[in-house]
């Protein structure tokens, strides 16, 4: 019903991101989507990848501050207005979105988001019949 996103603490200076990417490369893990939420001194690098739990283990072994967290990945048609419809479903139910980002996968739009009310979001997704991805969908990519 949800997928694992990795949150990684990286300092805002050169060389810190490449260290993380090198670990993933060595472990043969494919990055599907990523985004950085940053402040002046550090950033939280959010990552969707092919095998999140294995990636997490490898990064921890390398001494990186990393943690998995569950996020929703909603699949929508790659057409104008679809994202608005999806988000509207949640806002009407009174669910606020902590953060969101999106990418294209096999011709479909994927909306990644996290909310403070996971249980209610889960119920809305089931009720509204929205299609969501799970970790297995990501591992099939390879």
């Amino acid at each position: 019903m949800s997928i694992h996103q990795l949150s990684i603490f990286i300092e805002n200076r050169s060389g810190t991101l490449i260290k993380v990417l090198d670990v993933l490369k060595e472990a043969n893990i494919q990055i599907i989507a990523s985004t950085i939420a940053d402040t002046a001194e550090y950033g939280i690098y959010r990552l969707i990848c092919s095998e999140p739990m294995r990636a997490c283990e490898e990064l921890m072994k390398a001494g990186v501050a990393v943690a998995p967290s569950e996020v929703f990945a909603i699949e929508i048609d790659d057409q104008p207005g679809r994202a608005a419809e999806a988000v509207k479903t949640f806002s009407e139910a009174g669910i606020s979105i902590a953060y969101m980002y999106s990418f294209l996968l096999h011709g479909k739009g994927i909306l990644i988001f996290r909310t403070d009310n996971t249980e209610l979001a889960r119920k809305i997704i089931v009720d509204s019949g929205l299609r969501v991805l799970c970790d297995e969908d990501l591992s099939k990519i390879n």
Partner: peptide, 18 residues
């Protein structure tokens, strides 16, 4: 230094780290 074991899923936003 942030300690690896204490860096959990709640730290997925800068606000939590702040």
């Amino acid at each position: 230094e942030i300690r690896q074991e204490y860096f959990t899923g709640v730290f997925d936003t800068p606000a939590a780290v702040d």
